[in-house]
């Protein structure tokens, strides 16, 4: 064992040694070096684009030339509040709420079983069971439903085999949610939305349930609560932040989606489709920008509410 005899050693020297010493002496410089690239990218490019877009919502479009007039005005927002556009917003919000509620109801038993009863291999299986659909291709999932909901597809075939075709037709005859066939009805749109966003609800709910300590449930039953009462008064309130965290995803994703209603659904527009149409063929960037403000405002409000419920700790 050779050992240096001085208590303070000379520096390593060289470029790296000098640089390392300099960064050690200036922790702020180190922080700056680490933060500069991501902040430049996200803060300047991304936020810059976002604000540029929002700024455009305060411009308007010249009705005759179709060109953007670069003057500050609220004209575009007045246009946004037309009844036809309000219809689009209401339709999208109602769909987002229904999808969120349905996802919560379907996700809870899966999350509850995975968190409370599954163990070992089963637990991993349940986890992957939610993870794989979450990460598998969005378009493939929609495509699968196009196959399922087609007139000649598997769902109609099953109804026919079960002699329930009349029931399906009665459902499709209902106003608003019905339509010529499932693939052009709101029911179809709703089914695909629920299917595509469901895993986003399962994982946070399961995580919240896993964090409820066993002793708390034992304490509840020790204090005389029936299993149903324990569920109602202990488990559900503790799982709620997880469900709210999941709902942030299902709600936000439904608000902004434009591909699902385009492929499976009626011809009436959702917010995402309206944005797409206005920026594309119509070339009305100001109105498209104003439309994007709607989900941003709704989500801002939603996130604020969720934060008050402590949902961020469950993310």
């Amino acid at each position: 064992m050779t050992s240096p005899s001085h208590a303070i050693l000379p520096g390593r020297g060289g470029m790296f040694g000098t640089l390392s010493d300099a960064l050690w002496r200036n922790p702020r410089l180190l922080l700056f070096v680490m933060l500069a690239p991501p902040l430049l990218w996200l803060g300047v490019i991304y936020l810059g684009s976002l604000f540029a877009l929002l700024a455009q919502s305060f411009f308007s479009i010249d009705e005759f030339s179709g060109l953007i007039r670069y003057e500050w005005t609220l004209k575009t927002y007045a246009e946004l509040l037309r009844p036809s556009n309000l219809d689009i917003i209401a339709r999208t919000v109602i769909m987002a709420v229904s999808v969120t509620l349905a996802s919560a109801v379907i996700a809870f038993p899966i999350a509850y079983f995975a968190a409370r009863y599954a163990r070992g291999k089963w637990k991993a299986l349940f986890y992957l069971g939610a993870m794989l659909p979450l990460w598998s291709s969005y378009l493939v999932k929609i495509y699968a439903w196009k196959l399922i909901l087609a007139k000649e597809g598997i769902l109609n075939w099953i109804f026919a085999k079960l002699h329930l075709t009349a029931l399906l037709e009665a459902w499709l005859a209902l106003p608003v949610i019905g339509g010529n066939s499932l693939s052009v009805s709101y029911t179809g749109t709703f089914l695909v939305f629920v299917y595509v966003w469901l895993p986003y609800m399962i994982l946070p709910t399961q995580a919240a349930l896993e964090r409820v300590p066993e002793s708390m449930l034992e304490a509840s039953s020790d204090l005389g609560a029936s299993p149903a009462q324990t569920f109602r008064h202990v488990l559900l309130p503790l799982a709620l932040p997880g469900i709210i965290a999941g709902s942030i995803f299902t709600f936000s994703l439904t608000l902004g989606d434009y591909i699902i209603p385009q492929i499976i659904g009626s011809s009436r527009l959702f917010i995402g489709q309206a944005v797409y149409a206005h920026q594309g063929t119509a070339g009305n960037i100001p109105l498209a920008a104003a439309f994007t403000v709607v989900p941003i405002v709704i989500m801002g409000f939603y996130l604020w509410m969720a934060k008050r419920q402590g949902a961020f700790d469950a993310l």
Partner: peptide, 17 residues
């Protein structure tokens, strides 16, 4: 001071401690 040598401003990796 560590063994008579000034220690402030010396990073941990250059101290024989």
């Amino acid at each position: 001071e560590i063994f008579g040598e000034t220690a402030e401003g010396v990073p941990p990796y250059r101290r024989n401690v």
